[in-house]
């Protein structure tokens, strides 16, 4: 099988290891509002997958319902996609993952899709340790149904129409940590530099990787009293651990002094290189990460960057002891016990 494409490309366009250009990873023309954070998330994903040189058809993208869940149409055109029903992408992704363990799965969801209608499915897909990258494009609002508050909107903030948010918010990153996610990060759609390496690491991580990306809704939640507007987020973001992604078999050229960097080695051999920032905490220690998230929250800050990574876990298939061959490619010989065995079974019922 060859992944090379015969299409003509401008010679100046950079090519990845598969000889593909950035364009080969793009999607259809976006129909989201101009300036919507979700498009920036999509663009970062395109770049991450391009740079990782993953053949796009070996990725499946799944989503629920919402503007954010529409976004998969606008990236990775050469990947099969499945726009499921509202809040239920995790179960469909689970079934897809069970059927074929050889593909990469990227789930794209919104805060309504994940933190409200889909909160149960989200909790359980985390528990199940499905090998996937789960992205929530978190804008604190229901975009597609025109501006109702989401469960991730902070109490006390107001919607565009002036309604106060009455209920405490749900922090999905904290939840993912509590439920045993083995990779948790938070980012901001306005910070591509941060998003790309985090996405790359999440995709390479074999296990459940969760990224909460604050992704402002320019149409319904970008006003002055919102805590999810571009301006507010920019002012309140605190980057905790700065992470570089070092792919497999690359020459490690930059060197860091003692105590300046810290490597987390992933299953596939790639490395997450952490630079110690002023907000340093131990990203291998769940409690330390939880503590850091809470501390910043109390200070009115949004802690971004890699929050937690544990590469020494077992994923769903390991736990289920599933065969290495994708289940969808097993045939009669492997699956059907045949007539002779059935006769024996019949005898057991006589």
């Amino acid at each position: 099988m060859s992944f090379l494409k015969s299409k003509f490309h401008h010679p100046r366009l950079a090519r990845n290891e598969l000889g593909l250009t950035h364009r080969d990873y793009e999607g259809s023309l976006s129909t989201l509002c101009a300036g919507c954070g979700h498009d920036a998330v999509g663009a970062a994903l395109v770049q991450a997958v391009f740079e990782l040189s993953i053949p796009a058809h070996k990725i499946a993208k799944l989503s629920g319902i919402g503007c954010s869940s529409k976004a998969p149409t606008y990236f990775l055109n050469q990947s099969h996609g499945f726009n499921t029903v509202h809040g239920r992408m995790p179960s469909v992704a689970t079934g897809a993952g069970m059927a074929n363990r050889s593909l990469k799965y990227i789930g794209m969801s919104g805060d309504g899709d994940t933190a409200s209608i889909g909160l149960g499915q989200f909790a359980h897909v985390v528990r199940r340790r499905l090998d996937m990258t789960y992205i929530v494009a978190n804008n604190g609002v229901y975009g597609l149904t025109k501006g109702q508050m989401a469960a991730t909107a902070e109490r006390g903030s107001t919607t565009k129409k002036g309604n106060k948010v009455l209920w405490p918010d749900i922090d999905l990153a904290t939840m993912a940590l509590e439920l045993g996610a083995t990779f948790v990060a938070r980012s901001f759609s306005g910070d591509k530099e941060q998003m790309v390496p985090l996405l790359k690491a999440a995709i390479c991580h074999e296990g459940f990787a969760f990224i909460d990306i604050i992704s402002p809704c320019v149409t319904f939640n970008n006003h002055a009293t919102s805590t999810r507007s571009y301006d507010y987020v920019r002012e309140h973001v605190q980057e905790g651990l700065i992470a570089d992604f070092v792919p497999v078999a690359s020459d490690i050229t930059t060197s860091y002094g003692e105590g300046e960097s810290n490597d987390i080695c992933l299953h596939d051999g790639s490395i997450i290189r952490l630079h110690k920032g002023s907000n340093g905490f131990d990203a291998r220690d769940r409690q330390s990460s939880l503590g850091a998230i809470h501390k910043h929250r109390e200070n009115g800050e949004i802690l971004t960057g890699l929050l937690y990574c544990d590469p020494t876990y077992r994923d769903m298939h390991d736990i289920l002891n599933t065969t290495e061959t994708p289940l969808n490619s097993l045939n009669e010989k492997e699956l059907c016990p045949g007539a002779h065995t059935l006769n024996g079974i019949n005898n057991g019922f006589r």
């Binding site: 499945f82 179960s91 079934g95 499915q121 909790a123 289940l327 969808n328």
Partner: peptide, 23 residues
């Protein structure tokens, strides 16, 4: 592979995801 799901919505979602993916 058998998954005891959290509810019937998830149970059928799993079946649909797998069916879509060729199992």
């Amino acid at each position: 592979a058998i998954m005891q799901a959290e509810d019937e919505l998830s149970a059928i979602g799993i079946a649909i995801g797998a069916g879509w993916n060729g199992a």
